[in-house]
């Protein structure tokens, strides 16, 4: 099965975790998400410019032939603007505050059915001194969004950087987990066991 084919199986209300390693082709997965769900329905949360590095790699690889300025982006920390920035939030404030603010902003500027892609999820707890509490706040937010019929949320986590127990807690919330490491993309959690296989990019 090819990756876009698998993405088509994802239903509204689901939470998908993409775990990737530093040497993987994670930006290609991001590109397939934009292509499958459509730029107009997708919102990217770019944490600490990680999204910008994904864009840069796709640019360099010549893998994206559309204009990135159409991509709706929320910046959470970071300095480099790209895409159509709907809002910019301070990552150093209490996560419960920026989660609330981002939620209201998205509801007003981008209502209706949408796919939210969070790039750099693992950086949020790392940046805060109360790492464990912040990790739980994020997991709580992910749990709350689960089952929302207007939403599919896809969390990218760099497993070489993330704290192991945070990956564990996010795996529990996720309805599907996709693992990308060097040269391989594999489904390691799915509602249907028959979907568990290695995918072609």
């Amino acid at each position: 099965m090819k990756l876009p084919e698998y993405f088509k199986k994802i239903k509204p209300g689901e939470a998908v975790l993409v775990e990737y390693t530093a040497r993987s082709q994670a930006p290609l997965i991001f590109k397939d998400i934009l292509k499958t769900f459509g730029i107009e329905k997708t919102l990217v949360i770019d944490v600490a410019d990680i999204g910008m590095t994904f864009k840069k790699i796709l640019d360099l690889a010549g893998m994206w032939n559309r204009d990135f300025s159409e991509v709706k982006v929320i910046k959470l920390g970071g300095k480099i603007k790209w895409g159509n920035v709907l809002g910019h939030y301070d990552i150093y404030t209490d996560p419960r505050v920026f989660i609330e603010k981002m939620g209201s902003m998205v509801e007003s500027k981008f209502p209706g059915r949408r796919v939210v892609v969070a790039l750099g999820t693992e950086r949020v707890p790392i940046i805060h001194s109360d790492l464990k509490r912040v990790a739980l706040d994020l997991a709580e937010c992910a749990s709350t969004k689960l089952g929302d019929p207007s939403l599919i949320v896809i969390y990218f986590i760099n497993r070489d950087v993330a704290e192991g127990e945070f990956i564990g807690i996010m795996r529990d919330v996720a309805t599907r987990v996709i693992l990308a490491d060097e040269g391989r993309i594999k489904i390691i959690k799915s509602p249907l066991i028959e979907d568990m296989e290695t995918l072609k990019p």
Partner: peptide, 15 residues
């Protein structure tokens, strides 16, 4: 604890 019942419920609905 922290919406685990909700997580289980949503995962079950998918099957």
């Amino acid at each position: 604890i922290m919406d685990t019942l909700h997580i289980f419920n949503e995962h079950l609905k998918l099957v």
